[in-house]
């Protein structure tokens, strides 16, 4: 081995490296940490995790190609997250912002969450500055538009949503280096939204679908939510919670993990009430943090669900 080949190579392309170590880049960028965190903190969502891993690989390879001078264009990173309520779209968007930041595709990595109200104005001339203000705030990070289909209201042709859409499309195209837009919403309505706004479909490269959680996953989520607040189910309560999840799923306004969080909030309320009424003498930490079966079983879900609200006041008052 002599120095000659290296000298020649250096002459050929003084600024570009000759090879890229993907594994090292993977370690360095901290993508592994984000993916691991995603795996550890998010229950289920296997297809979503798979898609994110693929996206991360694509971006990493793209970055390597750019280092070698093979690619110069910024890839389109705008995404759409579709899925039922409570399936973790916002949480994953937060992780996605972190991921893109670590890979160097967005400079700041903050997430700006908006809905129609934040983008669309009240009167003529109000929408454009409002939308631009939001877009400017999101630059260098990720703009997450929740329930994006509300932007487009075909029934009202004078709706200002169309104006917001036009500005959004323009910035998504011209300022691709500056911000990444994630549209989120229910699958069927998003499909209709994309059909009536073909401009969006063509500008969005990654469509990620969020499946519903299974009952076992929801139970696991419930336990994690409780342990984060230093509560725990006792064994009978755990069984009751499993039954609760199974029957809650069949009822109205089921919102996956969000329904579970609300159920746990109410269970904590009942537990506090129970302790207050029944306890005689001092309580230890275990008693204060145990959710008992009765706290779960008292839920309306076991008595036919939310519809009991609609019954005459005398019955509901029971």
């Amino acid at each position: 081995m002599t120095d000659e080949p290296t000298a020649l190579e250096e002459k050929a392309s003084p600024s570009l490296p000759q090879s890229v170590d993907l594994a090292a880049a993977f370690e360095e960028s901290g993508v592994r940490d984000v993916l691991k965190e995603l795996d550890d903190t998010m229950i289920g969502l296997a297809p979503v995790k798979q898609r994110i891993r693929e996206t991360a690989a694509l971006l990493l390879v793209d970055q390597a190609r750019r280092q070698l001078g093979l690619a110069t264009e910024t890839p389109t990173l705008h995404m759409s997250f579709t899925g039922n309520p409570g399936t973790g779209k916002t949480t994953v968007a937060l992780k996605m912002a972190d991921l893109l930041h670590r890979l160097g595709y967005v400079r700041k990595g903050h997430l700006v969450t908006v809905t129609r109200d934040d983008l669309v104005g009240q009167y003529i001339g109000h929408t454009a500055p409002k939308t631009k203000e939001v877009l400017k705030k999101a630059m260098g990070g990720v703009l997450f538009i929740d329930e994006a289909y509300y932007l487009y209201r075909p029934e009202n042709e004078r709706d200002y949503g169309q104006e917001a859409i036009e500005i959004l499309l323009q910035v998504m195209e011209n300022n691709r280096d500056d911000l990444v837009v994630i549209l989120a919403g229910y699958a069927d309505r998003m499909d209709r939204f994309f059909e009536s706004n073909p401009g969006f479909r063509s500008r969005i490269a990654h469509h990620i679908e969020f499946p519903d959680y299974t009952n076992e996953e929801l139970l696991k989520i419930a336990e994690i939510m409780l342990s984060e607040q230093n509560y725990a189910f006792d064994p009978a309560a755990r069984v009751a919670m499993a039954e609760y999840i199974a029957s809650r799923r069949g009822q109205q306004h089921f919102a996956n993990a969000r329904s579970i969080r609300n159920a746990l909030d109410r269970a904590r309320l009942r537990q506090a009430n129970r302790l207050f009424n029944e306890a005689a003498g001092p309580l230890d930490a275990a008693a204060l943090s145990a959710i008992a079966e009765t706290d779960i079983r008292a839920s309306r879900v076991f008595r036919g669900g939310l519809d009991t609200d609609r019954k005459p006041a005398r019955e509901a008052a029971e």
Binding site: R107, K108, H110, P129, L135, K136, K137, M139, G140, G141, N175, D177, D178, L179
Partner: peptide, 15 residues
């Protein structure tokens, strides 16, 4: 326009 009080990234200024 207004002074940009709450934009964390300068891309907004260039815009």
């Amino acid at each position: 326009g207004h002074p940009m009080f709450d934009n964390p990234d300068a891309a907004a200024v260039v815009y």
